[in-house]
Design a protein around this nucleic acid. Structure first.
Lengths: 229, 229
DNA sequence: AATTAAGTTAACAATTTCTTAACAATACCT
DNA sequence: AGGTATTGTTAAGAAATTGTTAACTTAATT
């Protein structure tokens, strides 16, 4: 997995084992890694290492993750670093506080390396997408507006429920490309949601009901696609 | 859910109940399943069964999951098998050790069959995508586009059913090479599908009907080929 | 807490695609 | 040319996939 230009990750955890596993896996994927074993050290190192991602254990001696996060956010150059909290399932006390101080994501231990990596990768992808993502797209006679979750078709305005909107938006954004139901689930529902593939069909049906049958076509045995013309 | 070519899963757990539930669900999804009730047996069976996925209980009599995992990883042919640990929430002693010995994922009991299945499916999706090839090929006046599942011929767009599309795609990708009906069945239908060889003829006929007779030629007594010029 | 909306699942219907079998047509061989 | 093997073609029905509806579950809202 090359292609990445030297992204830097700072791992902060008081357990040496966890540091080792994460470091090992991240390096294997081509990330540059630094580590810290408590909050105070973390702030110190972060300010010099300038990581793109910070994996931060919540429960730590000396200074906990929430406070550490707050301090990191005050550092100018780390304003845009991704901060991901690591936490044991039980200690949910901080869940809310975590986001309040500016965390970007939240991962429960036990940590699954693959899941973690794919989530980190996703953070960057999201970032890239945000830059390119237009809130409004026009295809054929539809104007799909992300900011209001509405579809404008020939003067009339439709409001779609979230999933239906996302589905239409995703397909319309990638016209003429067939997506399998699993692809759609991955992209719209996310990788950690387990719903039946046929759920997609129901949403497709509802979208068609609202915008008409001739936008989304079925490729039997494969999936669905949005027809450009 | 077809589409999968005989993926093999080895289930290792000392509780008969769990084995049965998992086996039942996996078989229903079309996986080939073998089972073992302790670590020693697991290694023995794994080395002959050569599973693609190994679901491994951590707490087992005789030899625990971590040690078993280590031994399995030493077997050359199982280097790339996915190993997923199953564990009761409480016993987190092994969390770290598990990944150290090369586990790929980690699932807490009680196991929700659906989540498990979708996770296993996800493991393979990643693999399969890698193998995916060029999505667009141009031969003569045809453009065969895998991403939209369409054929473009001199400005007009043709939509072929899946098998016909795959057949044309395969032949066009390897022009001027004669394939026997069995070759085509192997490559397009897969190695575990048993249909009569003459089924190919029918599909060839339909493809010819749609794109014209002068692309695919018959080599009597041998098979079919796509004519480059 | 009750009500409403959204999302998911399950069941059945409708449709399309695939496969088979039968017969016709064609090429190949002696 | 006649016989044989192979392929072309068609149509019927099997199998697989998708459409559609309604019941149910979950989440949001009042």
């Amino acid at each position: 997995m090359a292609e990445r230009k030297n992204l830097k990750v700072l791992v902060v955890d008081d357990e040496q084992d966890i540091i080792e596993i994460l470091t090992y896996n991240l390096r294997k994927e081509g990330y540059e890694v630094a580590t810290a074993t408590d909050g105070v050290e973390a702030v110190k190192i972060a300010s010099r290492f300038l990581p793109d991602v910070i994996l931060l254990d919540i429960m730590m001696p000396n200074q906990d993750g929430v406070e550490t996060c707050r301090q990191i956010r005050e550092i100018e150059e780390l304003q845009h670093a991704f901060i991901v909290f690591l936490t044991a399932r039980s200690e949910e006390y901080s869940e809310v506080a975590a986001f309040e101080v500016g965390a970007d994501d939240y991962i429960n231990k036990p940590i699954k390396p693959r899941a973690l990596l794919s989530r980190i990768a996703a953070l960057f992808r999201r970032e890239i997408k945000k830059e390119q993502e237009v809130s409004k797209i026009s295809v054929r006679d539809l104007v799909i507006d992300r900011s209001s979750y509405t579809i404008n078709k020939a003067g009339t305005t439709l409001v779609l429920p979230k999933k239906e909107f996302e589905l239409l938006y995703f397909l319309a954004k990638n016209p003429n490309i067939v997506f399998s139901r699993d692809d759609l689930l991955q992209n719209i529902w996310g990788s950690d949601v387990y719903v039946l593939a046929r759920t997609v069909d129901v949403h497709i049906r509802k979208v068609r009901e609202k915008i008409g049958d001739d936008y989304i076509t079925t490729v039997k045995g494969v999936g669905y696609k949005f027809e450009q013309n």
